[in-house]
Amino acid sequence: MSENKEKMITVYIMGKAYEVPFGLTIMKAMEYAGYRFIRGSGCRAGFCGACATVYRNKGEYKFQTALACQATAEDGMYLAQLPFVPANRKEYDIAMINPEKNVLSEYYPEINRCVSCNTCTKSCPQELDVMYYIQAAIRGDYGEVSKLSFDCIQCGLCAARCPAEITHYHVAQLARRIYGKYHLQIPEHLLKRIEDIDAGKFDNEIGKLKKMGMKELKEEYTSRTIEKIQRGEVTQ
């Protein structure tokens, strides 16, 4: 560990060489080199999808893709951050949708341009079967799209790499929304909880939280107990 700390590596950020300590994530390596993330960073924990990045390893021809907050910077990496993917996203009212029709093709007809090149799947840092969920979208199979895309964090790398200009992650999100609203059963315990909320059962506790200062809140958060919920059981 202490040896590693001393060890420095060279990375190339937008073409310029920087010495950074070994063992940092790409994001931290760039920050070490003096870059500040105003966009393209969020949770720093691999959940928000804000930090899509493209890089290339020394001696290789291939572009690689990753989440900058997750992938470790290696010696000789060529780095560049993607600030944003200007992807096509449709506005819709989920309540107005006819789930019997293929709404995915209707709102995102360009999915039919897929050539099955598999570039999206290769670029996905979540290792999803992106190509196969777009294929399922073409035939309007909401369940299959939802299943295959469930772990998508919407980083946009698939869309940035797609030769057919498809915005996979927005298609998948629409599919999951339709599937959730029209095809899945509404969980009873959720209905019960909503009822409780509407009846004001938690007003008191929320009120207390709202009045707390930052320090108190933090303490409350770290000392919280996590309830174990049995399947189908409603905890009070």
Partner: peptide
Amino acid sequence: EIEDLPPIALVAAMR
């Protein structure tokens, strides 16, 4: 119109 079209027509036309 897309609602009624079979995928086969859309894929073919786009290709």
